[in-house]
Amino acid sequence: MADAEAKGQQYLAEAQKKLRSSQGFFGGLLGGGSRQDEAIELYVRAANSFKMAKKWNAAGSAFCEAAVLHLKSGNKHDSGSAFVDAGNCFKKADPQEAVNCIMKAIEIYTDMGRFTIAAKHHMTVAEIYETECVDIEKALTHYEQAADYYKGEESNTSANRCLLIVARYAAQLEQYQKAIDIYESVANSSIESPLLKYAAKDYYFRAALCHMCIDSLNAQMAVKKYEEMYPQFTDARECKLIKQLLEKLEEADVDGFTAVIQDYDSISRLDQWFTAILLKVKKQIESDSDMK
């Protein structure tokens, strides 16, 4: 690893020397452009050597140098790729700098009209904010932007994948109407596809739970609407559970509400998202009971 780092430093020094010699009047006469290309190659070699040595910040910085030179030469695609490579290195050491590099790549790709690639990298930025920087609001912004670009390119499956992540977090942040709108939209488009319609019951289930967090009457009306649009939903265990929960909600029966959930969970395990949403509804019942 020490050898790899030393080699990286050597390539870096050579790249900077090439770059200096390409500048100025005589450098231009003696083929400044070709020397700049050689400098780019040396920066990339330096970056790869630093990667081998696990010197992620140094590797990211070297890729950035290559990206800037590519951009000056008018090689936008190569510049974008180099900024992405830089971002992937910084992800291991400096998540915010990784975001900065990938955002530069996104700017290049959108300028080129490469919106599918830009969408993919917006997802990468969202994942960094989601897991490394832990800024869910910013993560949602980038997931939504990715979905927007995917939709524009008719990549609806990819767009929906992003939107479902947005909906999940929106519900956790108590932005229930936003979550409902997304779940209903994805469910409505799913029932039109023979391959995807089976998943619609899950999206309607999630939408109905979000409705319950707002208002039980709206939730009842929503379930009726879902059954009309997708008759198979009526026989689904998810629909039966919602109806039982709504009944206990109307009766302000906290114990009954809990028993219904436990009975369902004993057969089909409810994940953390469902548990958190149902807990919020249960607390509403308890709060209403205390006020009576």
Rank of each mutant, 00 (worst) to 15 (best):
D3H: 12
E5C: 12
A6E: 13
Q9M: 09
Y11F: 15
E14N: 11
L19G: 04
L19T: 00
S21Q: 13
Q23N: 09
F25L: 15
G27K: 03
L29Q: 08
G32M: 04
G33Q: 08
R35V: 00
Q36V: 14
E38W: 01
E41R: 05
E41W: 00
R45K: 14
A47P: 11
N48V: 01
A62I: 00
C64I: 05
V68P: 05
L69Y: 03
K72M: 13
S73I: 00
G74M: 13
N75A: 14
N75L: 14
N75V: 00
S79T: 02
S81R: 08
A82E: 03
A82F: 01
C89H: 05
A93M: 07
A93R: 04
D94S: 15
P95Q: 02
Q96A: 11
E97W: 02
A98V: 02
I102E: 01
E107Y: 06
T110K: 09
D111W: 06
F115H: 10
I117T: 11
H122R: 08
E127G: 06
Y129C: 11
E130V: 01
E130S: 10
T131C: 08
D135L: 06
K138D: 07
L140C: 12
T141N: 09
Y143F: 15
Y143N: 05
E144W: 04
E144C: 12
A147K: 01
A147C: 13
Y150N: 07
E153K: 07
E154M: 09
N160Q: 13
R161M: 11
C162L: 08
L163A: 02
V166H: 01
V166A: 06
A167W: 04
A171C: 14
Q175F: 06
K178S: 10
D181G: 07
D181F: 03
I182L: 10
Y183I: 01
Y183P: 05
A187P: 08
S189Q: 11
P194R: 01
L196N: 07
L196W: 07
K201F: 03
K201W: 00
D202R: 01
Y204R: 00
R206L: 15
R206K: 15
A207T: 00
A208Y: 08
A208Q: 08
A208T: 03
C210G: 06
H211A: 03
H211V: 03
I214F: 04
S216T: 04
K224Q: 14
M229T: 08
P231Y: 06
R237H: 12
K240F: 09
L245R: 02
K248R: 12
L249R: 06
D253P: 12
V254S: 15
V254R: 05
D265F: 09
D265W: 05
S266C: 12
L270S: 12
L270E: 10
D271W: 05
F274G: 15
I277K: 10
K282F: 04
Q284A: 14
E286P: 07
D290F: 14
D290Y: 12
